[in-house]
């Protein structure tokens, strides 16, 4: 499988990455080089093999359903590019 400029543009849109026409063009051969190389995985016989889910066997823990933090609004907002009235601020959204 290989990608063209339109596919890279679609992927970039999905990834919310703004790329110029020139950047899109440059990315096509780079991605195709990498994709052609990973293509070799297709030759591995994986019949009956489960995909890896946990590399080291571990059990998922449950904890008591209690509040463990909170009350730190100012800390949460401390690094926000824009915060107003105790909220994150974003440009106006009109759908």
């Amino acid at each position: 499988m290989s990608v063209d400029t339109a596919t890279v543009a679609r992927i970039a849109a999905l990834a919310r990455l703004q790329l110029s026409e020139a950047e899109l063009e440059a990315m096509v051969p780079e991605l195709n080089g990498i994709l052609a190389w990973v293509e070799q995985l297709g030759e591995v016989d994986v019949s009956g093999v489960e995909p890896m889910t946990a590399v080291i066997e571990n059990h998922l823990r449950l904890r008591d359903d209690v509040v463990t933090d909170g009350g730190i609004r100012d800390q949460v907002l401390a690094n926000a590019p824009a915060a107003e009235h105790g909220f994150f601020a974003v440009p106006k959204v009109i759908e």
Binding site: V44, V46, E50, P51, T53
Partner: peptide, 15 residues
């Protein structure tokens, strides 16, 4: 499936 699932199966084989 062609990429990600296949890679995770290969990962199982490597382990």
């Amino acid at each position: 499936d062609a990429y990600y699932t296949q890679a995770q199966k290969v990962r199982t084989l490597i382990a």
